[in-house]
Write a protein that binds this DNA or RNA. Structure first.
Lengths: 155, 155
DNA sequence: CACTTGCCTGGAGTGCGCTCCAAGGTCTTA
DNA sequence: TAAGACCTTGGAGCGCACTCCAGGCAAGTG
């Protein structure tokens, strides 16, 4: 049975609670194949392998035949990465963050600083977008009355 | 005298009033060289030429020696393009919009539809970012107390 | 007049984030 | 046990949005 197609479900339950275990669990096993993970995260299997290669994933378990077996912890991490990606943070920076995590507790101050910088960026992006929204609304306003498919208006 | 460096001033007066004439006028001439425009828009001269090549700019005036002379109208258009760019709209779509504008008044319904679709995207992006902010705050919270540069804390 | 600075062009190059390919091994279901 | 879906790897390729280069013209300054 082929894995169900459910790409692009970014809208996971909002409280993804990183490294806590409130994760949408595909089933009870805590062992997911790459295509399952692809389906759940909306990332492609290619991307998941690539993330691992560049050091954006902590080492993923393998089956005795060498196939990846992702854990719930991995899923949590990927959900967080997905969020960071939404902010437009460069992948290289996420790798840096991942490296800091790997280095252990003593890097927490740096990690905090990094996230705070990201936070600032996000706040600014939101402001920019809201500004853009104003412009867009103004522009749309100037087209007011111009309806799509203007023929057969008299229905 | 070289043009003043003031790259990256995205934060133009918010009411940029596309094709209206409330524009920050570099001086009174209504004729700007490419490097002046680059300074005012924060786009590189390369990018401005490229935008023209791909049809994202209405035809720009030229001096008798063939140099570009941008008008206030061009600046307005570029400000709008800058806003669209912030939304993440692909350049190809902006070109489409520019083509519609060139085709005249009868394309207004399409243009309106296009902007409305963009608006929807922007609203969604804002929501995503706000969601991300929540996650970020949660994460930062877990690092609370971890201060940058922990040595010499006892000051 | 030489020199510097700025502009022009077509086309090539860059960096990012994937995305795909080839060649092969594995797992599942009939 | 055989087909077919799935997994593995290193490395090549792609699309986007620039970004830069070479070679050349034009205008201002000492």
């Amino acid at each position: 049975m082929t894995v169900v197609q459910m790409v692009n479900q970014q809208t996971v339950p909002a409280a993804l609670c990183v490294t806590e275990e409130t994760h949408p669990r595909p089933d009870g096993r805590d062992q997911y194949t790459i295509s399952e993970v692809a389906a759940f995260t909306g990332m492609s299997a290619h991307t998941l392998r690539w993330y691992e290669r560049i050091g954006l994933m902590p080492h993923v378990d393998r089956s005795n035949t060498g196939q990846r077996r992702f854990s719930n912890r991995d899923l949590d991490w990927l959900a967080f990465v997905g969020k960071l990606r939404l902010t437009g943070m460069p992948v290289a920076d996420m790798v840096t963050y991942a490296e800091l995590v790997r280095e252990g507790k003593r890097t927490e101050p740096q990690r905090k600083a990094l996230l705070e910088a990201t936070r600032t960026d996000v706040v600014q992006r939101i402001a920019e977008l809201q500004d853009t929204l104003t412009v867009l609304d103004y522009k749309i306003g100037t087209y007011a009355g111009a309806e799509q498919a203007p023929e057969r208006t008299g229905a």
